[in-house]
């Protein structure tokens, strides 16, 4: 029972830890690639939490084997859900990276403060034109 408790703490604590680490990257970092990776770490933590939710002590993987003695099995649903969530996360991350590559090529920066200035500059203002030039602003951390 004590062992079970420590596994539980490890899995749930690990999931919570991953989420907090990812969230740190999201709120404290200015470089958008790092922020994207932070979101990916949060997703990893959430997926770990979801898989851990289906755990039962001593249970087998949910695959039937006619030769094996049938015992309890872990919950197959969270595993299927996590598979779906992982693929969704990959797709969103890939789209985000593609956007980041294109933006870096056009503006020479992925610093969120510099990009906010570009987005919020009134259309046609000198500032927005100056930022169009490559390497025109911002710094990468």
């Amino acid at each position: 029972m004590n062992e079970l408790l420590s596994i539980g703490n490890l899995l749930y604590g690990g999931a919570a830890g991953l989420i907090v680490i990812g969230l740190f990257a999201v709120v404290a970092r200015r470089h958008l690639i790092r922020v994207l990776l932070g979101v990916a770490v949060i997703e990893a933590g959430v997926n770990l939490m979801l898989v851990a939710a289906g755990f039962r002590p001593g249970a087998a993987a949910p695959i039937f084997d006619p030769q094996a003695i049938s015992g309890p099995m872990v919950d197959p649903i969270p595993q299927a859900l996590v598979l779906t969530a992982i693929v969704i996360g990959v797709a969103v991350l890939a789209l985000g990276l593609t956007l980041a590559i294109r933006i870096h090529r056009q503006y020479g920066t992925l610093d969120t403060v510099a990009l906010t200035r570009i987005v919020n500059a009134p259309a046609g203002s000198p500032e927005s034109r100056a930022m169009m030039q490559r390497g025109g602003g911002g710094h990468e951390s």
Binding site: L4, L5, I7, G8, L11, Y12, A52, A53, G54, F55, R56, P57, P62, M73, V74, D75, P76, I77, P78
Partner: peptide, 13 residues
């Protein structure tokens, strides 16, 4: 933890 409710999971298994 380790006591998954298995509400739907058990039925599916």
């Amino acid at each position: 933890f380790g006591a998954a409710p298995m509400q739907v999971g058990q039925a599916i298994v």
